[in-house]
Nucleic acid binder design. Structure first.
Length: 226
DNA sequence: GATATGATCACCT
DNA sequence: GGTGATCATATCG
Protein backbone atom coordinates (compact mmCIF):
# COMPACT_ATOMS: atom_id res chain seq x y z
CA UNK A 1 0.00 0.00 0.00
CA UNK A 2 1.37 3.33 -0.99
CA UNK A 3 0.39 5.98 1.52
CA UNK A 4 0.19 9.17 -0.49
CA UNK A 5 -0.49 11.24 2.58
CA UNK A 6 1.23 9.49 5.43
CA UNK A 7 0.91 11.47 8.58
CA UNK A 8 0.09 15.08 7.92
CA UNK A 9 -3.16 15.08 6.07
CA UNK A 10 -2.13 18.34 4.43
CA UNK A 11 -3.33 18.55 0.84
CA UNK A 12 -0.32 18.10 -1.37
CA UNK A 13 -1.73 20.18 -4.18
CA UNK A 14 -0.98 23.10 -1.92
CA UNK A 15 2.68 23.37 -1.14
CA UNK A 16 3.60 24.35 2.36
CA UNK A 17 5.59 27.47 3.17
CA UNK A 18 9.17 27.79 2.04
CA UNK A 19 11.85 26.75 4.45
CA UNK A 20 13.82 29.56 6.03
CA UNK A 21 17.51 29.87 6.80
CA UNK A 22 16.62 29.28 10.43
CA UNK A 23 15.17 25.89 9.55
CA UNK A 24 18.53 24.89 8.12
CA UNK A 25 20.93 26.22 10.71
CA UNK A 26 22.31 23.64 13.07
CA UNK A 27 24.26 20.44 13.19
CA UNK A 28 23.76 18.53 9.95
CA UNK A 29 22.74 15.37 11.78
CA UNK A 30 19.98 17.36 13.45
CA UNK A 31 18.81 19.29 10.42
CA UNK A 32 18.88 16.27 8.12
CA UNK A 33 16.04 14.27 9.73
CA UNK A 34 13.98 17.47 9.91
CA UNK A 35 14.12 17.64 6.12
CA UNK A 36 12.26 14.36 5.79
CA UNK A 37 8.75 15.04 4.57
CA UNK A 38 9.72 18.37 3.05
CA UNK A 39 8.96 18.98 -0.60
CA UNK A 40 11.70 19.58 -3.13
CA UNK A 41 10.12 21.40 -6.06
CA UNK A 42 11.39 22.29 -9.51
CA UNK A 43 9.51 24.55 -11.89
CA UNK A 44 10.58 24.04 -15.47
CA UNK A 45 9.13 25.21 -18.77
CA UNK A 46 7.58 21.78 -19.24
CA UNK A 47 5.99 21.73 -15.83
CA UNK A 48 6.36 21.24 -12.10
CA UNK A 49 7.61 18.22 -10.24
CA UNK A 50 7.61 17.96 -6.45
CA UNK A 51 9.22 15.21 -4.41
CA UNK A 52 8.50 14.44 -0.76
CA UNK A 53 11.88 13.60 0.77
CA UNK A 54 12.08 10.17 2.33
CA UNK A 55 15.82 9.66 2.70
CA UNK A 56 18.73 12.01 3.45
CA UNK A 57 22.31 11.89 4.67
CA UNK A 58 24.23 14.38 6.79
CA UNK A 59 27.74 15.50 5.97
CA UNK A 60 29.57 17.68 8.46
CA UNK A 61 32.12 20.29 7.51
CA UNK A 62 33.52 20.65 10.98
CA UNK A 63 36.52 18.46 10.40
CA UNK A 64 35.40 15.25 12.00
CA UNK A 65 33.78 13.92 8.85
CA UNK A 66 36.30 12.66 6.29
CA UNK A 67 33.46 11.54 4.04
CA UNK A 68 32.32 15.10 3.40
CA UNK A 69 33.40 16.81 0.20
CA UNK A 70 34.21 19.85 2.30
CA UNK A 71 36.73 17.91 4.36
CA UNK A 72 39.65 19.24 2.32
CA UNK A 73 38.53 22.84 2.66
CA UNK A 74 36.77 25.18 0.24
CA UNK A 75 38.07 23.69 -2.99
CA UNK A 76 36.41 24.89 -6.20
CA UNK A 77 34.07 21.93 -6.17
CA UNK A 78 33.03 22.17 -2.53
CA UNK A 79 33.07 25.95 -2.35
CA UNK A 80 29.28 26.22 -2.33
CA UNK A 81 29.15 24.10 0.80
CA UNK A 82 30.93 26.91 2.63
CA UNK A 83 28.41 29.50 1.51
CA UNK A 84 25.14 30.51 3.17
CA UNK A 85 22.54 27.89 4.12
CA UNK A 86 19.77 27.00 1.71
CA UNK A 87 21.98 26.84 -1.34
CA UNK A 88 21.96 23.83 -3.61
CA UNK A 89 25.26 21.98 -3.91
CA UNK A 90 25.27 19.79 -7.01
CA UNK A 91 28.13 17.49 -7.86
CA UNK A 92 28.94 15.00 -10.59
CA UNK A 93 29.39 11.42 -9.52
CA UNK A 94 30.89 8.38 -11.15
CA UNK A 95 31.16 10.21 -14.43
CA UNK A 96 27.48 9.72 -15.02
CA UNK A 97 25.24 11.12 -12.37
CA UNK A 98 24.39 14.37 -10.63
CA UNK A 99 23.58 14.46 -6.94
CA UNK A 100 21.96 17.24 -4.93
CA UNK A 101 22.74 18.56 -1.47
CA UNK A 102 21.34 21.33 0.68
CA UNK A 103 23.84 23.53 2.48
CA UNK A 104 22.78 23.58 6.12
CA UNK A 105 25.43 25.46 8.05
CA UNK A 106 26.32 29.09 8.64
CA UNK A 107 28.57 30.86 6.19
CA UNK A 108 32.06 29.43 6.45
CA UNK A 109 31.11 25.96 7.65
CA UNK A 110 30.96 23.30 4.97
CA UNK A 111 28.07 21.13 6.11
CA UNK A 112 25.38 19.78 3.83
CA UNK A 113 22.62 17.21 3.56
CA UNK A 114 22.58 14.82 0.63
CA UNK A 115 19.08 14.30 -0.72
CA UNK A 116 18.95 10.59 -1.40
CA UNK A 117 15.37 9.69 -2.22
CA UNK A 118 11.75 10.77 -2.22
CA UNK A 119 8.24 10.17 -3.45
CA UNK A 120 7.01 12.08 -6.46
CA UNK A 121 3.82 13.83 -5.33
CA UNK A 122 3.38 16.40 -8.09
CA UNK A 123 4.05 15.92 -11.80
CA UNK A 124 4.46 12.17 -11.80
CA UNK A 125 3.74 12.01 -15.50
CA UNK A 126 6.59 14.40 -16.23
CA UNK A 127 8.88 12.53 -13.88
CA UNK A 128 8.08 9.28 -15.69
CA UNK A 129 8.95 10.88 -19.00
CA UNK A 130 12.32 11.91 -17.55
CA UNK A 131 12.95 8.47 -16.12
CA UNK A 132 11.75 5.90 -18.65
CA UNK A 133 13.81 3.22 -16.93
CA UNK A 134 11.68 3.45 -13.82
CA UNK A 135 8.93 0.87 -13.75
CA UNK A 136 7.28 1.32 -10.38
CA UNK A 137 6.35 4.71 -8.99
CA UNK A 138 8.68 4.24 -6.06
CA UNK A 139 11.62 3.99 -8.47
CA UNK A 140 11.09 7.47 -9.89
CA UNK A 141 13.20 9.17 -7.22
CA UNK A 142 14.68 6.28 -5.26
CA UNK A 143 18.40 7.07 -5.08
CA UNK A 144 20.32 10.35 -5.22
CA UNK A 145 20.87 10.40 -8.99
CA UNK A 146 17.36 9.23 -9.75
CA UNK A 147 16.04 12.04 -7.61
CA UNK A 148 17.90 14.66 -9.63
CA UNK A 149 16.76 13.05 -12.87
CA UNK A 150 13.11 13.11 -11.88
CA UNK A 151 13.42 16.78 -10.95
CA UNK A 152 15.69 17.67 -13.87
CA UNK A 153 18.32 19.04 -11.51
CA UNK A 154 21.71 19.48 -13.12
CA UNK A 155 24.86 21.58 -13.15
CA UNK A 156 22.85 24.63 -14.10
CA UNK A 157 21.29 24.53 -10.65
CA UNK A 158 24.58 24.67 -8.78
CA UNK A 159 24.29 27.35 -6.14
CA UNK A 160 20.55 27.86 -6.60
CA UNK A 161 18.81 29.27 -3.54
CA UNK A 162 16.20 26.83 -2.28
CA UNK A 163 14.61 29.18 0.22
CA UNK A 164 13.85 32.11 -2.04
CA UNK A 165 10.40 32.69 -3.57
CA UNK A 166 10.49 32.41 -7.33
CA UNK A 167 13.61 30.28 -7.35
CA UNK A 168 13.60 27.53 -9.97
CA UNK A 169 14.36 24.98 -7.27
CA UNK A 170 12.76 25.31 -3.87
CA UNK A 171 12.30 23.52 -0.58
CA UNK A 172 8.85 23.68 1.01
CA UNK A 173 7.53 22.46 4.31
CA UNK A 174 5.44 19.30 4.22
CA UNK A 175 3.99 16.90 6.70
CA UNK A 176 6.76 15.16 8.66
CA UNK A 177 6.85 11.37 8.44
CA UNK A 178 5.18 9.45 11.24
CA UNK A 179 8.42 7.68 12.05
CA UNK A 180 12.11 8.28 11.27
CA UNK A 181 14.88 5.69 11.22
CA UNK A 182 18.64 6.23 11.32
CA UNK A 183 21.55 4.14 10.14
CA UNK A 184 24.98 4.22 8.53
CA UNK A 185 25.54 6.20 5.37
CA UNK A 186 25.77 4.47 2.03
CA UNK A 187 28.45 4.44 -0.61
CA UNK A 188 31.27 5.94 1.41
CA UNK A 189 34.48 4.35 2.58
CA UNK A 190 35.23 6.45 5.65
CA UNK A 191 33.36 7.27 8.82
CA UNK A 192 30.93 4.50 7.99
CA UNK A 193 30.12 4.05 11.66
CA UNK A 194 28.23 7.33 11.99
CA UNK A 195 24.46 6.77 11.83
CA UNK A 196 23.92 9.84 9.72
CA UNK A 197 21.53 8.45 7.15
CA UNK A 198 17.90 9.14 7.97
CA UNK A 199 14.81 7.84 6.27
CA UNK A 200 11.05 7.73 6.72
CA UNK A 201 10.53 4.33 8.26
CA UNK A 202 7.42 3.51 6.30
CA UNK A 203 8.61 4.84 2.95
CA UNK A 204 9.03 2.39 0.10
CA UNK A 205 11.20 4.76 -1.90
CA UNK A 206 14.30 4.29 0.23
CA UNK A 207 17.61 3.07 -1.14
CA UNK A 208 18.28 -0.61 -0.70
CA UNK A 209 19.92 -1.20 2.63
CA UNK A 210 23.16 -3.13 2.64
CA UNK A 211 23.48 -4.51 6.14
CA UNK A 212 27.15 -4.43 6.97
CA UNK A 213 28.13 -5.14 3.41
CA UNK A 214 30.20 -3.16 0.98
CA UNK A 215 27.99 -1.12 -1.30
CA UNK A 216 30.51 -1.16 -4.07
CA UNK A 217 32.60 -3.98 -5.38
CA UNK A 218 35.59 -2.59 -7.20
CA UNK A 219 37.51 -4.70 -9.64
CA UNK A 220 39.03 -7.78 -8.12
CA UNK A 221 42.51 -7.46 -6.73
CA UNK A 222 42.56 -4.30 -4.64
CA UNK A 223 40.85 -4.37 -1.32
CA UNK A 224 42.35 -6.94 0.98
CA UNK A 225 39.92 -6.18 3.76
CA UNK A 226 37.36 -8.59 4.96
C1' DG B 1 50.98 16.60 -16.99
C1' DA B 2 49.25 12.00 -15.32
C1' DT B 3 46.61 8.94 -12.51
C1' DA B 4 43.61 7.08 -8.83
C1' DT B 5 39.16 7.50 -6.90
C1' DG B 6 34.27 8.04 -6.07
C1' DA B 7 28.02 10.49 -1.41
C1' DT B 8 25.83 5.57 -8.33
C1' DC B 9 22.64 3.43 -11.70
C1' DA B 10 21.15 0.15 -15.15
C1' DC B 11 21.40 -4.18 -16.74
C1' DC B 12 22.99 -8.95 -16.61
C1' DT B 13 22.85 -13.65 -14.52
C1' DG C 1 23.23 -10.37 -6.22
C1' DG C 2 27.08 -8.80 -9.04
C1' DT C 3 29.55 -5.97 -12.53
C1' DG C 4 30.51 -2.35 -16.22
C1' DA C 5 30.12 2.48 -17.61
C1' DT C 6 32.37 7.00 -17.49
C1' DC C 7 34.49 11.82 -16.08
C1' DA C 8 35.29 15.75 -12.73
C1' DT C 9 38.09 16.43 -8.91
C1' DA C 10 42.05 15.97 -6.13
C1' DT C 11 46.56 14.66 -5.46
C1' DC C 12 51.10 13.48 -6.82
C1' DG C 13 55.41 13.91 -9.66
Amino acid sequence: MVGVLSGGGRPLSELGPLLTAGDLLGQPDVVAPALLGCLLVTDRPEGRVAVRLTEVEAYSGEGMDPAAHSHRGPTPRAEIMFGPPGRLYVYFSYGVHWCANVVVAPDGVGSAVLLRAGDVVVGEELARARRPAARASRDLARGPARLTQALAIGPEDKGACLIEPGSRVRLHHGGPPSSVSAGPRIGISQATDLPWRFWATDADSVSVFRPGGRPRSRRAGQDGRS
